Simulated scan of single mutants.
Amino acid sequence: MWSGVMPAVTTKFGEEAGLDRAENERCFAIQMDAGCDGLIVCGSLGEGPMLTLAEKLELLGIAKSTAKGKPVLMTVAAASTAESCDIARAAAKSGADGLMIVPSLVYFTDRRETLDTLRAVVEAGDLPAMIYSNRVAYKVDVTPDMMEDLAPDERFVAIKESSDDIRRTTEIINRLGDRYDVFTGVDNLAFEALAVGAVGWVAGLVVAFPRETVAIYRLMKDGRADEALGIYRWFRPLLDLDVSRYLVQNVKLAEVHAIQSNDRVRLPRQPLQGAERQRVEKVIADALATRPQLPSFA
């Protein structure tokens, strides 16, 4: 159902900490103009847990207006199942094309709790859903056997695979074939995941470097892995910035330099400063200075 590059977009704030509608529109449009295949709002990179429901729905509306008919997914990530269900229902009423569901944001659910929560949320929203399996950040692992248990419900259509174990993509495909659209959710494992059968990439650094991200994906799908690998090797130091406790600050700082945006974040996060800011800015500057010329692709 879904495939390609789907940015997990950042959320742009104004100087008074509210949403900056115009800047969100501009940044979302950059993704679409580069050839991305959809948008995912209010995720980890989008500071979703720091947003009110009204803000989430406003961002959904902005994304829908700029997505050129491509799918826009709302991330559902809340402390309680009841709140997650409320978000899913509201997103459906506001025109979301699908949901990306985090099983549990704070409490580390066991197998039964994880499955029951996913089923409750997809029932509440009654939309196609991507299961977000991220045992590193959220300590809840949606395993292939759990995916098999959920497979009879056709509303579960995709997996965002973020276990940080490249073997997992093959394990899912070996066990379930093409039942799910498997997306890689770890930027610095994207080439590897696409090489073993992932059909999509929920990307982070794409918000600053969309054309390079799309080029890697399209070249891989065209069977031009050597060309994709050359770009990926250049990209890797940047992609590593997505795998960090400071991923939001890192990626927004990349947006400052690459697309002339800003790095405002919502408290308790604060923009990088001092030696860490200098380190990240050097990674970005080095990449910009050696930015590759992209080949043509379909």
Rank of each mutant, 00 (worst) to 15 (best):
T81R: 03
A96M: 05
S44C: 10
G98C: 03
R89S: 14
V72N: 03
L39G: 02
P103S: 10
A96T: 10
A91G: 10
T109F: 14
V102I: 13
L53P: 03
T52Y: 01
K56A: 04
D97E: 03
L53K: 06
S44G: 15
S65Q: 11
A77D: 08
A82R: 12
C85I: 13
L60D: 06
V106M: 12
L73P: 02
S65G: 08
T81D: 08
L73D: 06
S65K: 13
E83T: 09
A78P: 00
G38N: 01
G98K: 05
D86A: 14
L51R: 05
I40Y: 00
G69A: 06
E47L: 07
E58R: 04
T109G: 15
M50K: 13
G48V: 03
F108G: 14
L60C: 06
T66Q: 15
L53D: 10
L39K: 04
A78C: 13
A79S: 14
E83Y: 15
G48W: 06
K64Y: 03
G35S: 04
V76G: 03
L39E: 03
R89K: 15
V76F: 07
T109C: 14
A92I: 11
G95C: 08
A91E: 06
I101K: 11
G98E: 05
A54Y: 06
K56N: 03
G48Y: 09
G46I: 05
M50Q: 13
G61H: 03
S94Q: 12
K93W: 07
M100F: 07
E55V: 07
I101Q: 08
C85E: 15
V76I: 15
G35Y: 07
K68W: 02
D86F: 07
G95L: 05
P71S: 11
S104N: 11
G61Q: 07
C36K: 00
L99Q: 06
V41L: 09
A88Q: 08
G61Y: 10
E83R: 14
R89I: 10
C85A: 13
D97M: 02
A67H: 00
A91T: 06
A78M: 11
D97P: 00
E55W: 09
A96F: 06
G43Q: 02
V102L: 14
A78R: 14
R89H: 05
S80Y: 11
M74D: 06
D86R: 13
S80P: 10
E55C: 12
S65T: 05
G46T: 05
T75R: 01
L45F: 13
